[in-house]
Amino acid sequence: MKRDHGARSVAHKTYGRMSLSAIDVNLVVALDALLRERSVTRAARRVGLSQPAMSHTLTRLREALGDPLLVRVGREMALTDRAEAMTGRVAALVQGLEGLFGERPAAFEPRESARTFKLTAADELQMLLLPHLQRLCTQEASRVTIHSVRLGDARIVEGLRSGELDLALGTFTDGDLAGDIQRSELYLDSLVGLARVDHPQVRARTDMDAYLGMRHLVVAPPGGRDPVDELLARRGLTREVALTVSHYLVAPHVIAASDLVTIVPQRLAAAFTTGMRLRTFELPFELPAVETAMAWHDRVQADPAHRWLRRQVAAASQPVPVGGRRRRG
């Protein structure tokens, strides 16, 4: 049908501008339907709106674009010159939006993947978890590589943000992580005393006097005072610290060769007492359980490969029942 361009002058109106922040995707979809159908009724049917709702949307579009878009020519509606000019661009935009919002992350097939994952953890945590994690990964994804990297605590958030790290494992205190970092508890661990098997002063249940009469090895906490010394100080008590070390993995070797005692997480103590002449004992005071968690960046929250990795780490963190197999999480 040939349009009467002069007829459009009857629809002349001054339109304002709408802020881009006030425009939603539904307006773009409606605009595409109006340009394709050249009819409010048919456009409404195309996108599942009522005719009055589409009329209201057309009014909003006219205000946003500063153009009538559709004008009546006789008994038909026709596109303005500007509407004709934007038809192809709007169609391409809708197609792009459909692709963007319809897109799903590529499926992760563990048995076919040769991906490398990078994680960081303290050495003692690597000792506890990596053997089990490696076994699980070998069962499900024999070509996947786990690369454990050494990264200082101060760089963990930066590493997760940049992609230098996929996952961080550790004991994170308030303020260690940022708002764009996700965190999930792996397990809680109680603290126990550790001594050599034939230590002359150690019993299964040790009272406070006996504990204070021993000489102690302390694994220095990063950047702060030992919580045991703080607890004792609140009670007006002190203990004799004969040796301070910077790493848990040093402690069992010193303890096994001396009359010193120390405090370690229960899981670590279980690993130390297997194959070494060491024993645990109950402390004469209560200490908060230690949380071990994993952390990752928001960017990989929904990524199938990263979700698979986190499931493996969670499964590797489950306790092993006596005489049983590790429970899958």
Rank of each mutant, 00 (worst) to 15 (best):
F117L: 03
F117C: 01
F117P: 01
L119K: 02
A122F: 04
D123L: 14
E124H: 15
E124I: 12
L125E: 05
L125Q: 06
M127A: 14
L129D: 06
L129C: 08
L130M: 15
L133E: 01
Q134W: 08
T138L: 14
T138F: 14
Q139S: 10
Q139E: 14
E140T: 09
E140G: 14
A141G: 05
S142W: 05
S142C: 08
S142F: 04
R143N: 11
R143L: 10
V144C: 05
I146T: 05
H147C: 09
S148E: 07
R150G: 07
D153S: 15
A154K: 07
R155C: 00
I156A: 03
I156T: 09
E158H: 08
G163V: 00
L165D: 02
D166K: 00
D166C: 02
A168H: 03
A168G: 02
A168D: 00
G170A: 09
F172R: 00
F172E: 02
T173F: 09
D174F: 12
D174M: 11
G175W: 01
D176G: 10
D176W: 09
L177E: 05
I181R: 01
Q182D: 13
R183Y: 06
R183M: 12
R183S: 13
S184Q: 14
E185F: 04
L186H: 00
Y187R: 12
Y187K: 10
L188V: 07
D189R: 10
S190Y: 04
L191M: 11
G193A: 10
R196C: 05
V197N: 07
D198L: 06
Q201C: 13
Q201V: 10
A204S: 15
A204Y: 07
A204L: 12
A204H: 13
R205A: 10
R205T: 06
T206K: 03
D207H: 11
D207Y: 11
D207C: 12
M208Q: 14
D209C: 11
M214N: 03
M214P: 00
L217P: 09
L217M: 13
L217W: 04
L217Q: 04
V218C: 12
V219C: 13
A220R: 15
A220W: 13
P221C: 14
P222Q: 10
P222Y: 08
P227L: 02
L232W: 09
L232D: 05
L232Y: 10
A233K: 13
R234Y: 04
R235P: 03
R235C: 03
L237V: 09
L237C: 13
T238Q: 11
E240S: 08
A242R: 09
L243I: 06
S246V: 11
S246Y: 12
Y248M: 09
